[in-house]
Amino acid sequence: MRLLDYLQSRGLRANTGMCTLGDGQAWEIIVNPRSVERTVRGRLSLIVVHGQEEKAKMHFDLTAGASLSMIELFAADCAVECNIHQQAESDCRVVSVSVAGSKADYTIDLDGAQASNHMRAAYIAGGEEHTTVSLRVNHNVSDCQSDSLVKGVAGGKAVGEFHGLVYVAQDAQRTDARQTNRNIEIGADAKIITKPQLEIYADDVKCSHGATVGQLDGDAIMYMRQRGLSLEQARRMQIEGFVSDIVLHAGEIGEILAEELTSKLERL
């Protein structure tokens, strides 16, 4: 796995440990966790690698003003449940990438005013994989912000699923919530299922959600081939472009995640 190789080149010696990356930040690394429970005070930068088939549970409590930055890679057919509770003025940023038939189930609870959650996820499913991203964002109090973008690619006979829910409680006025799911189906045998939902019980809110399912853009492929790229290169470049704005949020690790995604394209 490229990500592990990279982290080891940066000094990671065991399955858990610390790495200082190019940004000067100390990142905590957790590989193949079964269970993670953390109370975050101040700032935590975390890289989690799910590299084997199993079930895992993660739970994060962000205290007031805390910030969590988490990069997650799913490299095996695992099922991971992740709950994040955020107190006032806490900030959580997740970049989640899957190149396997994984099931990622996120529940975000925004429990204190001015808490913000920023979620970016991408997956590429191939073969007979079934990849699912579930994302429930609960705006339990007023004045919180959430912004989620999930991008899925399914090729071969794979199934990609998205279940999104933005829940806004009765008193959660001035909520600002966005959730978007975009997908590309490659070939006639791949299947995308997307179920975005809004459940709003407050009246003074700004909420939007949207989902799209498309195919590769034939005109763009023609354009690229006319410049000399092969059909395969053109397809790959288009898909890399499609997921690029997800990994963009992961700094130097983003490049490694992009490589993980690209190498997956060769195995569709």
Binding site: D217, D219, A220, M222, Y223, M224, R227, G228, L229, S230, Q233, M237, Q238, E240, G241, F242, V243, S244, D245
Partner: peptide
């Protein structure tokens, strides 16, 4: 009608095109 290719930079696109040729 030149085609838009989201997420693919001109530089990367041209590098691949020039080198393929």
């Amino acid at each position: 009608y030149p085609v838009e290719i989201p997420g693919v930079t001109m530089a990367n696109f041209m590098k691949m095109a020039v080198n393929e040729q």
